[in-house]
């Protein structure tokens, strides 16, 4: 792993302080993986093998509804974590797909190595506390937005916090994430300022 790549990974674990030997070991646990656009990183029905840190690209996490339509649950992008966490943690088949919407480069750590971080280095317990707290609160906010805001309000809230990378993915994914029809999303995009 190149130094510049490692610095990005290190920045994702701000609570973790490792010595030189530990750092070398930590660095060796991650594998670089590349995915083409439209490639399925994780398929529904298979068990997630990795926890990912995204270096490049955008990925969508989605489930198929009864009609077979994609219902987008979330996105990952440069600097964010990725993967199907429930399948990874519980080692059970995934209900969701993880798809590369753009060509993607990701660092991957498998379950055994991920677990070893928590057992070997106490700082990862602190990191884990912050990480899962932020995920939980983020999902809670999203649920409140979906249940209480109008389509226009959801659009504005999302666009105000959305990274630039997400603005160039196909609209249907953003529309699905915001629980609106692609036509509604397109209309809001033309008529709404944020």
């Amino acid at each position: 792993m190149e130094d510049v790549t490692y610095q990005k990974l290190k920045a994702f674990f701000p609570q973790v302080h490792l010595g030189a030997v530990e750092e070398s070991k930590f660095r060796s646990l991650w594998v670089l993986k590349s995915f083409n656009r439209s490639e399925l990183i994780t398929e529904a029905g298979t068990t997630e093998r990795y926890f990912y840190f995204v270096l490049e690209g955008v990925q969508a996490l989605y489930i198929l509804n009864e009609k077979g339509e994609k219902v987008v649950l979330g996105f990952s992008y440069s600097g964010s974590p990725s993967g199907v966490f429930d399948s990874f943690m519980y080692k059970t088949p995934s209900f969701t797909f993880l798809e590369a919407l753009k060509p993607s480069k990701m660092l991957a750590i498998n379950w055994e190595n991920y677990q070893s971080l928590f057992e070997l280095y106490p700082d990862f317990q602190t990191w884990g506390h912050h990480f899962f707290r932020d995920i939980l609160i983020g999902r809670l906010y999203r649920e409140v937005e979906l249940l209480t805001l109008s389509a226009e309000e959801r659009y504005i809230q999302f666009m105000q916090r959305c990274p630039k990378e997400l603005r160039v993915i196909p609209q249907k994914y953003l529309a699905s994430y915001l629980n609106m029809q692609p036509e509604t999303f397109s209309r809001l995009r033309k008529s709404t300022h944020y």
């Binding site: 399925l40 398929e43 529904a44 029905g45 298979t46 009609k67 077979g68 994609k70 088949p93 797909f97």
Partner: peptide, 17 residues
């Protein structure tokens, strides 16, 4: 009858399992 590759993959994974 709507066909998507994701739906097919999901069903095929279940079938093979």
């Amino acid at each position: 009858l709507l066909i998507t590759s994701e739906n097919q993959i999901q069903r095929l994974n279940l079938l093979m399992k």
